[in-house]
Design a binder for these strands. Sequence first.
DNA 1: GCTATTATTCTCACCACTGAGATGGTGGCA
DNA 2: TGCCACCATCTCAGTGGTGAGAATAATAGC
Lengths: 175, 175
Amino acid sequence: MATITQPISDRSAQRHPEAHEPDVDETTLSALRLWVIMNRAQSAVTAHAAAHVARHGLTLAEFGILEALYHRGPMLLGEVQKRILVSSGGITFLVDRLTAKGLVERRTCDSDRRARYAALTERGQQLVVEMFPTHAQELARVMSGIPIEDQKAATEILKAMGRAAAQMASPEDDR
Amino acid sequence: MATITQPISDRSAQRHPEAHEPDVDETTLSALRLWVIMNRAQSAVTAHAAAHVARHGLTLAEFGILEALYHRGPMLLGEVQKRILVSSGGITFLVDRLTAKGLVERRTCDSDRRARYAALTERGQQLVVEMFPTHAQELARVMSGIPIEDQKAATEILKAMGRAAAQMASPEDDR
DNA sequence: GCTATTATTCTCACCACTGAGATGGTGGCA
DNA sequence: TGCCACCATCTCAGTGGTGAGAATAATAGC
């Protein structure tokens, strides 16, 4: 059965003898809680977005590519890859699949013969035009309970968080 | 090659003739931006957490189970499933694998013979004791650039967001 | 020029996880 | 008591990717 993404709210559950209180300082606890809550929120919102694009026969990664190409124009595969956060193998695979669906085409790059552009076909463009407004509205609907100022505040905080996390090396890397 | 999760910062890129400005209202744009930024942040932070647990030969889902069992004591499989957000098949699969690794065991439930508890073995418990502090510290390190008040503010907003999204039906459901 | 290094995409073996349906157990009700 | 809707878990075929390495092209240093 599909995962029903629901918040856990049994603060009433009594403690089991084999349970252990987490023992960390205030700062660490804050990070830990934010991590858990962010995962839950992301998962719950993603479920809606994924259901929406699935009605059009797409995965979120596929739609992400279409949307990126629509809003930025043709891009090198490597650019698309960084933008939608998939692996190098993944971008080849996804563009292959979108090409098979007739939504995307590869174009050669004159200045670098290793590189390929991905670009929307006519049909791909039509599909984005059709899907994007409802996709965006669906997200707006899901977040409609959160005041705009809060959304913007969260966006700024998460932007800083993502940036910091992305450029931070893992502790092992500096040996 | 692995995905390098990095923020995109080419506001300097000039607009391609085939590009299209997104045309949505302020409210929708806010939701859209939060959605994108949240995904990026989640992905970047997750990469660190996943790398950490991978050094101990675990996936994040596996570690999530161990952690939940450690902090709450033995739980029914269904409870664990809801808590770590995997499918029904997934929880069986993950508990199988953790059992094969000798970290978790299944226990019968006296009051309901359909149900099974998952519980940590001695070794599982040792592993959580060993891993949890560094896992938590790693998250704290990754988020160390974000002031605690911001972390807490983001946590509250995202908690409301997750709750709202989780209990919200998809537009198709009410037919 | 020539070699070493780096960048871009592609190939392919692999994998963590999904989800529809099966299995077996429970409990309410006529 | 027997029926049946419901529930928890399990099975298994399928999927949406990952990531190491190959192939090829560009670039830097000499």
